[in-house]
Amino acid sequence: MELNQYKDIFVFAEQREGGIQSVTLELLGKARTLADTLGEKVVAVLAGHQISSKSQELISAGADKVIVADYPELKDYITEPYAQTLTHVINNFKPSVLLIGATTIGRDLGPRLSARVKTGLTADCTKLEIAEAGHLLMTRPAFGGNLMATIVCKEHRPQMATVRPGVMKKFDTDTTRTGEVIMLKVDFDKSKFKVRLIETIKEGKGKIDITEARILISGGRGVGMEGMPKLKELATTLKAEVSASRALVDAGVVTHERQVGQTGKTVRPDLYFACGISGAIQHLAGMEESDYIVAINKDKSAPIFQISDLGIVGDVNKIIPLLNERLKK
């Protein structure tokens, strides 16, 4: 493999129903920093149907160039048409780096693509940097967040990485930025299209996304089913969202979409209220980047106190209702 033929930082621009996903803008922000370090370009790859009008949004968010694949076959995500499109992009444009959001789409597409073009893929990176030698350093948690590992892919290209939503910071949008838009021609091998989409179902209108919340009131085992309504009241007062540790999700008190942690979501709100959460390492992995962490727990040796900014050793089921009462005044 002629490594020096490969250059530029490519970002898979994920769209759903024509809307650019937030993780894409976060990846463009990171790609911008990496490309500036290397003196290379940021290229967004946008696949979908009748979506070329979205190119400027990607340029404003940091892309120098947008490659658009506009086909009815790409309207909704299905593995094979997307894998063929991205393979075509890799073979023709030879990216040095390809970044993909670690969503249900990205985590389906990424590995398929890496096996097809025979390169390495590092999942769920929390940090991306350029090494002095110019290759990508991809750092990710392992063992349920207990250990960090920096992964390299020195002899294969592109260097592929997925990043979970909410981990990287967006680039300050600049609508005056200009860039090049390239319409891509793809010759699909339709004999390989073996999975057919029957329908896409959205559950629960106005479904919440805890990664977008500025304040999270998060409950754990110490709150239990009985304490949950009080947390919800406090959340209403503070215009916050309710989230939870795995204990309450497994107990069926809170739905999985509100779970924070390694098997749930990574969040970084301005304020994270950890109520009756002991702080298993899997949970900490999902919230420790929060700006300000208040922890309330009966057990003063609870690990949550090792990362909280303000720790209160006390009864959460007494403190929360009282706090809510005071705030309402």
Binding site: R16, I78, K194, V195, R196, L197, I198, E199, T200, I201, K202, E203, G204, K207
Partner: peptide, 8 residues
């Protein structure tokens, strides 16, 4: 957001 029904 929910789920997809697929056929293969």
């Amino acid at each position: 957001e929910g789920y997809q029904l697929l056929e293969a």
